[in-house]
Simulated scan of single mutants.
Amino acid sequence: MADQVRVYISIGSNVDRERYVTAALDALANWFGGLEISPVYESEAVGFNGSPFLNLVV
């Protein structure tokens, strides 16, 4: 049996947010199977004028 490694990936988008966050989660689930997903947080853009981000950790 292979050793398991825990990896944390940060996902965020402020452009078509739901679409791109969902696409990222779908791609990761297709590649790795079951995922542990944090709550989703909204945060303002920092360092530039832009729409708020959706952020989470997988």
Score class of each variant (00 low, 15 high):
Val57Lys: 07
Asp3Gly: 02
Leu25Arg: 12
Leu35Ser: 13
Gly50Lys: 05
Pro39Ser: 15
Ile9Trp: 00
Ser51Asp: 15
Thr22Arg: 15
Leu56Asn: 02
Ala2Asp: 10
Glu18Ala: 07
Asp3Gln: 12
Ala29Phe: 02
Val46Thr: 13
Ser13Thr: 08
Val5Cys: 00
Gly34Thr: 13
Leu54Asp: 00
Val57Asn: 06
Ile11Asn: 00
Val5Tyr: 05
Glu42Ala: 05
Asn55Met: 04
Asn14Ile: 10
Ile9Tyr: 00
Asp16His: 10
Tyr20Leu: 11
Ala45Ile: 10
Gln4Arg: 12
Met1Ile: 07
Val57Asp: 00
Arg6Ser: 12
Asp16Thr: 04
Asp3Ala: 15
Val57Met: 09
Asn14Met: 05
Ser51Ile: 06
Phe48Gly: 09
Pro52Tyr: 02
Val7Thr: 05
Asp3Met: 09
Phe48Pro: 06
Leu54Ala: 02
Val5Glu: 08
Asp16Arg: 09
Glu42Phe: 04
Glu36Met: 10
Ala29Asp: 08
Ser51His: 12
Ser10Asp: 06
Tyr8Val: 13
Gly33Phe: 02
Gly33Asn: 03
Asp3Ile: 11
Pro39Trp: 07
Val57Arg: 01
Ser43Phe: 02
Leu25Ser: 03
Tyr41Lys: 07
Ala45Asn: 05
Pro39Gly: 13
Glu42Cys: 05
Ser43Pro: 01
Tyr20Val: 06
Leu28Arg: 02
Gly12Met: 03
Asn14Cys: 07
Val7Lys: 01
Val58Met: 07
Ser10Asn: 10
Ser43His: 05
Ser38Val: 13
Ala24Pro: 00
Ser13Lys: 01
Ile9Pro: 00
Phe53His: 09
Tyr41Trp: 15
Ala29Ile: 02
Ala24Cys: 15
Ala24Gln: 03
Ala2Thr: 08
Leu28Phe: 15
Ser51Gly: 01
Asn14Arg: 03
Gly50Met: 07
Asp3Cys: 08
Pro39Gln: 08
Leu35Ile: 15
Pro39Val: 11
Pro39Ala: 14
Ala45Cys: 07
Val7Met: 04
Ile9Cys: 05
Arg19Gln: 08
Val21Pro: 00
Tyr20Trp: 15
Ser38Cys: 04
Glu44Thr: 11
Val57Ser: 10
Ile37Pro: 09
Gln4Val: 14
Ile37Asn: 00
Val21Gly: 00
Val40Ile: 14
Arg6Val: 13
Val15Asp: 11
Ala2Phe: 07
Ile9Met: 02
Ala29Glu: 15
Leu28Ala: 13
Thr22Tyr: 06
Phe48Thr: 04
Asn14Ala: 06
